[in-house]
């Protein structure tokens, strides 16, 4: 219970939280904007890292590797999207199918090994747990992840304000209305799933670099961590009236807070093996609160649609 040990571990926790914050922004796009629970991310959270590390190991630049990881994620999203829209499989099941299939694909990408390490001294990694302290500030992982998040939020803010981005938002809000307004909701769902999984795979690429290896289990429970970040962001910053960019920022901060809390919990002496259970419970509680509030603590519900003009 050494407070110095805790303080020393916080920058690293922040960095991990920021990387998972990027991942959570991907989850936000499907879960909040498209109103789909997409479980593909448990697979893509490994795929991105696998692609990125294998490409770097074979001598490609870090940016190209991350870009291809992004594309690989989009491809996974495309598969889930096609399963869901053209083949009529419920979104959750479509995601589970993709995720399961990805397990084999991820192993193949990693040359049939469960783990592929990359040496921070031999390869020009963009982020690493070794780049937290004692490196020039421009190489600092914290700074780099913050810049990436700022850029990502900027791009998404612009995109979801375009005609195309608005049509994705409309699809998530009301499919009947969207189709009546000429929006091809199959296309917008697939596009949303692709963007989301692309971002998740990109985050995965960063995370594998940060840890120094790609791991076949990297994505296990990723959706829960992503949701946790989204929900924490919403609970803590939802009262602040902010625009869309602020919402994305609060999701990223949600990721950071999740990891800080985790660090404190570990510091208090909890077994690291119990973390997934704790994460699941925390997310379950936060998902249940709005429902229970509505059911037990609300005033008589207003009837929808019969209000006065």
């Amino acid at each position: 219970m050494n407070i110095i040990a805790l303080l020393n571990s916080l920058p690293g926790a922040c960095a991990q939280g920021l990387i998972w914050g990027i991942m959570a922004i991907g989850v936000f796009i499907t879960y909040k904007i498209l109103d789909l629970a997409d479980l593909t991310v448990d697979g893509t959270m490994c795929t991105g890292g696998a692609v990125c590390i294998m490409m770097m190991l074979s001598g490609h630049s870090v940016w190209l590797s991350l870009f291809v990881a992004f594309l690989a994620g989009m491809l996974a999203g495309l598969v889930t999207g096609v399963l869901h829209t053209f083949l009529g499989i419920p979104a959750i099941l479509a995601g589970i199918l993709s995720q399961l299939g990805l397990y084999s694909i991820n192993l193949r990408i990693m040359d049939n090994k469960a783990n592929q390490a990359i040496n921070v001294d031999k390869y020009p990694l963009l982020v690493s747990l070794r780049y937290i302290k004692g490196v020039p500030f421009y190489k600092n992982t914290l700074l780099i992840t913050v810049i990436i998040i700022a850029l990502l939020i900027g791009i998404l803010y612009w995109f979801f304000g375009t005609e195309l981005g608005c049509s994705i938002r409309a699809t998530g809000s009301n499919q009947n209305m969207s189709r009546a307004q000429g929006i091809n909701t199959d296309f917008t769902k697939i596009l949303g799933l692709m963007i989301s999984n692309g971002i998740v795979a990109f985050a995965s690429g960063l995370y594998a670099q940060y840890q120094g290896f790609a791991d076949i289990n990297a994505g296990r429970g990723a959706i829960v961590i992503g949701l946790a970040a989204v929900i924490i962001g919403q609970v803590l910053f939802g009262k602040i009236h902010g625009n869309f960019a602020f919402k994305l920022l609060s999701v990223a901060l949600g990721g950071v807070i999740y990891y800080l809390v985790l660090q404190v919990v570990l510091w208090l002496g909890l077994n690291a093996n119990d973390l997934k259970l704790i994460s699941a419970i925390v997310v379950a509680v936060f998902l249940a609160i709005p429902y229970l509030k509505e059911k037990h603590f609300s005033k008589p519900a207003k009837k929808g649609g019969t209000g006065r003009a």
């Binding site: 995109f159 304000g161 375009t162 005609e163 195309l164 981005g165 608005c166 049509s167 409309a170 969207s178 307004q181 000429g182 929006i183």
Partner: peptide, 17 residues
């Protein structure tokens, strides 16, 4: 309204409104 105004048009990367 902006969504409705674009009914029948291809939705591009131009400003949504």
């Amino acid at each position: 309204l902006a969504l409705a105004a674009r009914r029948g048009q291809t939705r591009t990367l131009k400003k949504g409104i």
